[in-house]
Design a binder for these strands. Sequence first.
DNA 1: TTGTATGCGTTATCAG
DNA 2: CTGATAACGCATACAA
Lengths: 328, 328
Amino acid sequence: MAQVSTGTVSRALSRPEMISEETRNRVMQAVNTLGYVANGAARTLAMRRSKTIGAVVLKFGSSNFSQLVEGLESMLTNKGYTLLLSASEADGITEFSALRAMLARGVDAIALLGFEDSPETKDILSRYRVPHAHMWSDPRHGGNFIGLDEAKNGRIAIEHLSELGHRKIGVIWGYIGGPTRFRSRMRFEGLEDAANDLGIEILPKACIYTEHGFEQGRKAINEILDRQTEVTAIVCASDYLALGAMNGLHLRNKCPGKDLSIISFNDNDFSAYVHPPLTTIHLPIREMGFKTGHYLLKCLGEEMTADTYSLDVELRVRATCRPLIDPE
Amino acid sequence: MAQVSTGTVSRALSRPEMISEETRNRVMQAVNTLGYVANGAARTLAMRRSKTIGAVVLKFGSSNFSQLVEGLESMLTNKGYTLLLSASEADGITEFSALRAMLARGVDAIALLGFEDSPETKDILSRYRVPHAHMWSDPRHGGNFIGLDEAKNGRIAIEHLSELGHRKIGVIWGYIGGPTRFRSRMRFEGLEDAANDLGIEILPKACIYTEHGFEQGRKAINEILDRQTEVTAIVCASDYLALGAMNGLHLRNKCPGKDLSIISFNDNDFSAYVHPPLTTIHLPIREMGFKTGHYLLKCLGEEMTADTYSLDVELRVRATCRPLIDPE
DNA sequence: TTGTATGCGTTATCAG
DNA sequence: CTGATAACGCATACAA
């Protein structure tokens, strides 16, 4: 329609500077009236690059699917990439098969969440030399392990409680299986270290180790209350647990933040919406998505501006209603 | 390596029944030791089908991104499809450009959320004859409009309040722009109709029309309380508003569910985790994702089992702590 | 600056 | 049942 060869059209679209203004206009004209959209499969085949990043998010408890994916996606879109998502809880979708499917789709790089790092996985990943990153894992393991300084997170919680005057505290901790265990463990170690440093006592009788969940939090706080300890504050591993604990307190006519302080890490966003406000340590999940995208695109030789995404956690005291108690 | 032609390999992989057992084994053997994964781009090019569904979720207020996408994704994965996601809030990502990008990627079908249905959009959609579905829109508009019976939802709220004996109620309603406005409007009409039918009075002085959000809910309830009306219950359009309203009650030392009943629609999941439990009308968002996937795959000629996904809403009374008041 | 020709890795058609 | 061969629609090296 523009009276030019296919090659010229191709160049007009992907490298306009190589084409004279006149022909380019003619081509664009035709493109518009025809509503022409280049065939991505053919382009991928020819260029051996799909401009697509795969993300496979294996099901696990409190995975921050939504925030993480949002962060990753917006980063990629800005650079002209798209996100191929595999987050299925369907039966038989294993680590390996999900990965295989991604590779078959021809993704340029892969973001992983909740992977066991099995031999098979490692094998297929290395065989295809696809850039990949493990999200929410231990950043000390290397460049493609994107994650938080969990020990620091734990420390922040204790420091905050210490400043408020708490001396005897309890812990409701959530069990997480698999490779993500580390983040739970690290955070707890940070907790313990800081408690030692600051002269805070973690009463074993006020510590519960349980599954994650609202119900579990409620049960846990009940048990702790039954044990009649002297704790003035409880650290919860996740906001699910914390909200359950709050509810448990209410049910026994105690007021969170007054009779017993609760501080928690918020993996999710909803802990912002409870009353009385929970003291939460905000984890930068969305930013983790940014950082993952940033890393992968850099691996692909994309020009990336300086890494401005800090993964520092941020303490957000949401105690606008009642202050945490001062035990003195 | 298996001493066969490429054609045979292709068949061994995608149509095993056409191949003798012996050669098939030989091929599989080679596939395994080689770690061979077929090139999806080439396959797509040859078959003119990508086995990929695009979802473009335009940013808007309380979109249930996460649940909706999860539902859609699990449906697709079960049928061997994958999800190409575009949910960016990046600048300049318009309805049209997002759609274009999807088409360029060669998706077989498209799921839309939050679309204005502009002329351009319609044009490109019809030009490419790609099966598509509008999620969370008015199901009365046709087969590819997947959504809820919002009028019924409104009615359910009123019926429930009526059964509990409420006679004078208020409403905190959330404004949503764009084409999704309908769901808000429909729901409200259902509310009004049912109120008329059941002899319930919606006091204008206890009605607030506002943006969605936690803060907005808090302000709204404050205003309503200031107006000193006789309402015994408030219907909130979304759980964001409801949680804000709850908080507002607490701040004025009133107890939700005792001094004033609150009922809300829960678009999100977190309203399950508050105290005292909110009476909520659970909206089947995830199921909407299922249904969308079901519809699109059927358009693509996929064998689908009978449609078992009901989009009926479900009233979930979470009043395990304190009952709604009986105003008699 | 533009046209031509070849290759990208499959699937599908058609013989054998 | 299997092998050759021609699309599939684009990018690119090379020629003009």
